[in-house]
């Protein structure tokens, strides 16, 4: 099997992952072969972002817990040479090269020193740009990094598809969380409305008052954000509440 076929297989596995953790695990199983054992991916927060909000920027992370806690507690994001580098010019870079490029101060170097305590001595990072123009930084850390251009190609392709998959999965989780809940009665009334029944007819079928059937339909319409009953029915079908 050629290297490229192998890369395609990695990507297939990553795209078949069903949770963000699984994406993270599958990507790392690829990068580990090249000495990269820790992954952090997220949008770059603005300077001064409070610690409690920094978590919201993280998409995938498998850093040692203690290291992540220290990074957030000491507000390393404001000093991390990689973050500075990506803000200036989003481009692929090695950790140590980024420190030189931004002329990292003592504090900046301390971030790396601390990473070393967790066996993260060097690594590579590269940017991806999301649809709304945000810079997503992927940072992979490990021991000594010496990658050929072909190996870099494999890692960056696999990472890109991993981030894409993780974003799809996150979007799906959000949709489920914001999923509108229709009650059983609302759903029943919508089902009959979809078949062209009037409020009075629905009330007769379900043995409820006409006023009650009207109320159920109005509630369903409001929950579905529809302007009229036709749109409400269309939305309910699209979202799979009725058939």
């Amino acid at each position: 099997m050629s290297d490229f076929d192998k890369t395609l297989e990695y990507i297939d596995q990553i795209q078949a992952a069903s949770t963000p953790d699984e994406v993270c695990g599958r990507l790392l199983s690829v990068t580990r072969e090249f000495g990269l054992t820790a992954l952090m991916a997220g949008t770059v927060p603005d300077p001064g972002t409070p610690a409690e909000d920094q978590q919201g920027h993280v998409l995938l992370c498998d850093w040692p817990t203690e290291w992540l806690e220290r990074y957030v507690a000491r507000n390393y994001v404001d000093h991390d040479p990689l973050v500075k580098f990506m803000k200036r010019k989003p481009a692929p870079v090695k950790w140590l090269e980024a420190a030189d490029a931004v002329g990292a101060d003592e504090f900046g170097r301390r971030v790396y020193g601390d990473a070393g305590e967790f066996d993260l001595h060097d690594g590579m990072a590269f940017p991806l740009i999301t649809l709304d123009g945000k810079v997503m930084m992927v940072s992979l850390g490990g021991s000594v990094i010496d990658l050929s251009p072909a190996e870099f190609g494999i890692i960056s392709l696999a990472s890109t598809y991993a981030i894409g998959r993780a974003m799809q999965l996150h979007a799906r989780i959000e949709t489920i969380e914001h999923r509108i809940e229709l009650t059983h009665r609302e759903r029943e009334c919508m089902q009959w409305a979809a078949m062209g029944k009037s409020e009075w007819e629905i009330s007769q079928i379900l043995g409820i008052s006409e006023h009650t059937s009207e109320k159920h339909l109005l509630n369903a319409k409001a929950k579905l954000g529809a302007v009229n009953r036709v749109q409400a029915v269309a939305e309910a079908i699209r979202l799979g509440y009725i058939s």
Partner: peptide, 18 residues
Amino acid sequence: MWVLRALQLHFLARPLGY
């Protein structure tokens, strides 16, 4: 970097090379 945007737009994407 366009690959990510394509995936966000629900294209099915497959690389053809490096």
